[in-house]
Design a protein around this nucleic acid. Sequence first.
DNA 1: CAAGGTGTTCAAGACACCTTGAACTTCTCT
DNA 2: AGAGAAGTTCAAGGTGTCTTGAACACCTTG
Lengths: 180, 180
Amino acid sequence: MRGYNYRTDDQDDAFDRLPAWESLVVEGVGEVIEFWGFKRNMGRVWGLLYLRDQPMSAAELQEALDLSKGAVSMITRDLEQWSVVERVRPAGQSIWHFVAKVDFVEMISRVLKEREQNLVERVKLGLADAERLAREAKADKAVIERIARMRRLADFMDQALSVFLRTARLDVSKTREVLK
Amino acid sequence: MRGYNYRTDDQDDAFDRLPAWESLVVEGVGEVIEFWGFKRNMGRVWGLLYLRDQPMSAAELQEALDLSKGAVSMITRDLEQWSVVERVRPAGQSIWHFVAKVDFVEMISRVLKEREQNLVERVKLGLADAERLAREAKADKAVIERIARMRRLADFMDQALSVFLRTARLDVSKTREVLK
DNA sequence: CAAGGTGTTCAAGACACCTTGAACTTCTCT
DNA sequence: AGAGAAGTTCAAGGTGTCTTGAACACCTTG
């Protein structure tokens, strides 16, 4: 998988700033998140916030995860938009802090579904057009049939993913709050 | 999603070389394949071979899909390795031709499963280490519990994907050969 | 086995995506 | 309202991945 990791000023990386177990968790979540098509650092930030279970400021995140100021700003904004992180202001503090929310599987589901639906929709329309055009052009009957079969395959893809997402959510909620 | 598309010598692209319906199918398959993490051109090649349902030479593929010679060689090799394309030599021909095989969903399943299993395995090991280290370091009990919960989440991910893949294969085989 | 075409490899290049860091904006407190 | 800190934006640069194209290796046929 692809992985970006700038800011490796020699051995001055995250492994030196965090207890070993925190590094392991943070990097693990980062990889999983990346697998699902998000930015690795979104996972790292969420992971640390979840593990610590206490509000952290942008500066603290920047230090702990060895990110730039800008990166922290953008990543927290993303996480907030996906509502897996919340921005809070502890009593008597003027600085925003972040806390992890736990509807994490929700986020993956939502995005995956959305991305996949856009795609399948588009492809299905394309295949419908293709079928029509092939008919108009009096293409071979077998060709038209194969296009029709592909449309069916697209439907299956859709269904299978729905089942997957339903299962994922179910599994997670079944055990009464895996996280938190 | 990412998409590469070199070799766009002005309007000299694939849309001019193929009947419109073929372009639609080819590009559609390309997009779907890309969604699943493969190279777009793998999908385009397989799509055309499937649609045409007749052996095509490397030169024909190159011309039809506007690829370079090297690209055709590498892509067909990939597809062959995933056994979704077969290399044949029509009677009395010295040139290799390619034909589409139909275990396409199989390919996606196999690869997805493999990729995901590698990842989950690695992450689970990491989380196990993390838990051990946290214990040894006498970290807060709640922290340890949260790490344990994450391990459970990883298991769920595993299961959910298994269900997805099983469903996909089932759906496809249930209807007796969607493709072909 | 020699010539010419067919097929493969791989370094260089192209592209999309991510991150940086400094300029800029907004906020907070006095 | 002003100073300084907190937070955001975005052009420039970095990184990984895919493609190109030419050099090379391999066939095949006469």
